[in-house]
């Protein structure tokens, strides 16, 4: 059997699965996005672009903008937290401890995200663990829950490993001698960071950025539970169309707009990725 035949045979099951279980339903969805809501929440198959026009109204554009903002800040914060940790594991930790530390980064993900969000509520709320600790040392209670900071805590908490792991992967491949060369050439630690370490880990930053940014665009649990549902993000909006307003056509249109946004983001990340591969 030729290598090509083998490759096709290997690919076929997964490709067929995705065609039937992903592409076909998406096509059905796209058709639905051209229809309109029936009185009972069904779909009337009369095609128009009305749902897309509605999705581009200022109200919804504002929500898209807000989601992009949340995703961008989440991504930046994850980078800020994950980069030093990945660096520490890659270069400061003895080889035999590395895999354990990496596993510890993802272990929390084997419990329900919802359950972990509720644990955060217990930590943050007015009479919660943190305020109890503050009270014990005689400090006044803080309103930590139901604000934007709490949303960010939840978001960063949920996405951090998706930034840390690609970063680590790109650092692991990094040639230590390049850093030593930079030091040898008289670069200060800060300049070594800016001019050598950061550019060389760019592939990891781009990959992690994509992996954090995309799911953050669709975030809905942290804004609802930790943010007190006081802001609407695309995730909640789409959710509400299907689960509350029973307006599947508009929900479908919104999600195709969201998918478009995501594709733009991925395309933006491709350049640093491609540039880095060329190195």
């Amino acid at each position: 059997m030729s290598a090509r035949r083998q490759a096709l045979l290997l690919l076929a099951p997964a490709a067929l699965t995705l065609l039937v279980l992903f592409a076909l339903p998406q096509a059905l969805m796209f058709e639905a996005s051209l229809g309109r809501r029936s009185a009972y929440g069904g779909i009337v198959h009369e095609w128009s672009l009305a749902n897309y026009a509605r999705a581009l109204e200022p109200l919804y554009l504002g929500i898209f903008a807000r989601s992009v903002g949340l995703a961008a800040v989440t991504t930046a914060l994850c980078l800020l937290l994950a980069w030093p940790v990945a660096w520490w594991i890659a270069f400061r930790v003895p080889q035999r401890h590395k895999s354990a530390l990496l596993v510890l980064l993802v272990l929390p993900f084997w419990t329900s995200f919802l359950v972990r969000m509720y644990a955060w509520i217990v930590l943050l709320r007015t009479e919660g663990v943190i305020n109890a600790a503050l009270a014990a040392v005689g400090m006044p209670a803080l309103d930590l829950l139901y604000n934007d900071i709490a949303v960010l805590i939840g978001q960063v908490y949920g996405e951090l490993p998706f930034m840390a792991l690609p970063l680590y992967a790109s650092m692991e491949k990094l040639d230590r001698r390049l850093l030593e060369a930079a030091a040898d050439l008289g670069a200060s630690p800060l300049r070594r960071l800016r001019e050598v370490a950061l550019p060389l880990t760019l592939p990891g930053i781009a990959a992690g950025g994509v992996l954090v940014f995309i799911p953050s665009l669709g975030a809905y649990l942290a804004p609802d539970l930790l943010g007190g549902a006081k802001g609407v993000y695309v995730g909640n909006l789409v959710q509400a169309q299907f689960a509350v307003a029973r307006d599947a056509p508009f929900g479908a249109a919104l999600s195709f707009v969201l998918a478009l946004l995501v594709l733009v983001a991925v395309a933006a990340a491709r350049r640093p990725l491609a540039a880095a591969r060329a190195l």
Partner: peptide, 8 residues
């Protein structure tokens, strides 16, 4: 988004 996969 998950919700889209779900409803589709």
């Amino acid at each position: 988004p998950e919700i889209v996969i779900a409803s589709s």
